[in-house]
Amino acid sequence: MSVSPPDAAAGPSRGRRAASPVRLLAGAVGTVLAASFVIFSSLSVAPGDPVSQILGQKATDAQRAAMRTQLGLDDPLLVRYWHWLTGVVHGDFGTSLTYRQSVSGLLGPRILTTLALVVMSAVIILLVGVALGAFGGTSQRWRPVVNGVVGFGVAIPGFVAASVLISIFAVKLGWFPTYGAGSGFVDRIWHLTLPAVALSLGWTAYVAQMTAAAVKEEASREHVMTATGRGLPRQLVFRRHIMRNASIPVLTASGLTVAGLVAGSVVIESAFAVDGIGSLLIKSVSNKDYSVVTAISLLIVIVFVLVTTVIDFAQAALDPRLRDGGKV
């Protein structure tokens, strides 16, 4: 839960002019470019010096100057950005200063681990969160119970959940391993179960809260009364007139949540010593390994942009009013 929750109140923007696919894609590329520049330039002004990180404190000034020139650190910012960007376009994210290895080679296997963790968490969040929310939003009697559970889930930070889960399920009961990502499909799932639960706990509660609110609101709409008044079976009214309409805000919230999981994995991967993108980011930040930090940050931005673009398309598919650009 290191990222602030996506804006819940915004929901789907009704009546907003629908963007054409071309404009959506152009906007996505523009966003990624702008973000990459912000990331790149802010890391270049961040305190700390990669040169002393590499050469250590005892290096002479001449050695330092030579290293600076070798790394291109004395070039103007825009020139360095341009070099970096052209490299990225050709698939070259630079070289890690600490690992002495290409950044793409470093990220490749870790992306798979983090992806597995994120997918498992996303499945938990969507299944449990939406089910819990739909239940809490419909059943008046169970609403307080669901609210309580949800409040509890939101309030627990991921690293606390991680240590509690480790001490109970890994140390005391010994059902799951305490660290590592495992190898092979089943072993990996077994290794990543506790991290996925820890990662998804807060977000599950958040999605449940969003779903409950959306379901409650949609259930109170007049057209739901029309449907009930026509004698439609309750499940049909629920499915077709409540859940379907509530799915738009729920989709938005859970989409942004899943996108945020990559960032959230930073804490959880460190807690469970899972060697993924998140733990690599933390190590690289403390080592001032800027090319790795830049690449991971850019990756997180790309995931966000991809997910929001998909959400935009999905909203238009679900809501005919968005397809018409809000015309009445």
């Binding site: 709409r221 007049e222 009364m225 029309t226 077709r240 309409n245 809501d319």
Partner: peptide
């Protein structure tokens, strides 16, 4: 109010 009483998604 026919607008409020019809599901906008159908």
């Amino acid at each position: 109010d026919p607008r409020a009483h019809t599901n906008p998604l159908l």
